[in-house]
């Protein structure tokens, strides 16, 4: 048995070491694979706030992931084709600048999460699962029918967006950008979980009565968590679209929403590094077993089954004991 914090450091080390090792050995594909894992990890860390800490299972987080992808796609498409985005009342042009795209993505995802959250959080349990799924499906079908931005074919972005001072087309540099974002998100999430807000959100999952009896507004608490959660997942969507230089309706697909949940379950629900471990394992399994058989999901199914049956805390729960001392 190892301490959870030691396991986290090990995973973090692996996450950073593998791509740089691949870089020295000239294996850009491995770097891209790791970038993919990191981006999925960010998405799932976002979802984990709602699902793991808040306890409301969103089966529609692809809505934010896809939205992030389309915000990036649309802004970059306008920029690369020299078409203004909005002409009236003020002139808005597309942009290829990552930081600007990120800020707009976060704002847009938070806004979408506020709308979806205000409606869906009136329900609980299986109804919440279904209503979030419905919203994501609405986004999916909307994107397939929006022919101005490629419809079902999606949008191709020829050159990756810019980040000041870096060559983003270099795999290791793009990986570093994504990895730093993951670290920042993890840092803030780690603080958030221990903050008064995190404590209350955690308690609200366990007893709504309790949280109201000590004076918290249950709905505001959940809605705030959902907005933060959606914003983080949205940001990862913009990165994912940048990684592939392509965005399509498949980024809104319900399978993706399900995969985010699977990452969390594999790694450990509600654990800070659960989604990171889950995303890493998922991406590597997909690569390794997927190379042998097209039916690799069967193996994933077995692993998932084993984890759900034998280790409620996911991989982290299996490997580490509870940190005994709380400072």
């Amino acid at each position: 048995m190892i301490k959870e914090s030691h396991l986290n450091i090990f995973v973090l080390g692996l996450l950073i070491f593998v791509p740089f090792f691949a870089y020295w050995n000239d294996q850009p594909f491995t770097i891209t694979l790791m970038t993919r894992a990191v981006i999925f990890a960010i998405a799932a860390v976002g979802l984990n706030l709602a699902l793991g800490i808040g306890g409301f299972i969103s089966f529609g987080h692809a809505a934010f992931f896809g939205l992030g992808g389309y915000v990036m796609g649309i802004l970059a498409w306008h920029s690369q084709n020299y078409v203004t985005l909005v002409e009236w009342p003020i002139l808005i042009e597309g942009t290829k600048s990552m930081p600007i795209i990120w800020i707009i993505t976060i704002a847009a995802s938070a806004f979408l999460a506020a709308i979806i959250g205000m409606i869906s959080l009136k329900t609980t349990g299986v109804y919440f699962i279904m209503i979030t799924l419905a919203f994501a499906q609405m986004m999916y079908y909307f994107s397939t029918s929006w022919s101005a931005y490629g419809g079902e074919d999606g949008l191709s972005i020829y050159v990756r967006n810019n980040f000041p001072g870096l060559n983003t087309l270099d795999p290791i540099q793009f990986f570093s950008i994504c990895c730093v974002i993951l670290l920042i998100v993890l840092f803030f999430m780690g603080r958030l979980i221990k903050s008064p807000f995190g404590l209350a959100l955690n308690a609200s999952r366990q007893s709504r009565q309790r949280i109201e009896a000590v004076g918290f507004d249950f709905h505001k608490l959940q809605l705030t968590a959902f907005i933060l959660s959606g914003a983080i997942t949205g940001l990862s969507g913009a990165l994912f679209a940048d990684l592939n230089r392509f965005v399509s309706p498949s980024m809104f697909s319900w399978q993706l929403s399900g995969e985010f949940i699977v990452f969390i379950i594999i790694g450990g629900v509600g654990r800070l590094f659960g989604p990171v471990i889950g995303a890493l394992i998922f991406v590597w399994l997909e690569h390794l077993i997927g190379g042998i058989s097209d039916y690799w999901h069967i193996f994933l199914g077995f692993i998932l089954l084993a984890i759900v049956l034998f280790g409620k805390g996911g991989i982290i729960g299996l490997l580490s004991r509870e940190d005994a001392q709380h400072e």
């Binding site: 803030f188 603080r191 958030l192 221990k194 903050s195 008064p196 807000f197 995190g198 404590l199 209350a200 949280i211 000590v214 004076g215 918290f216 507004d217 608490l221 705030t224 709380h326 400072e327």
Partner: peptide
């Protein structure tokens, strides 16, 4: 925390 009214603190560890 509930009694303090400071419910919207996201950064500093409560303990």
């Amino acid at each position: 925390v509930g009694a303090s009214g400071k419910h919207w603190k996201f950064f500093n560890p409560v303990l």
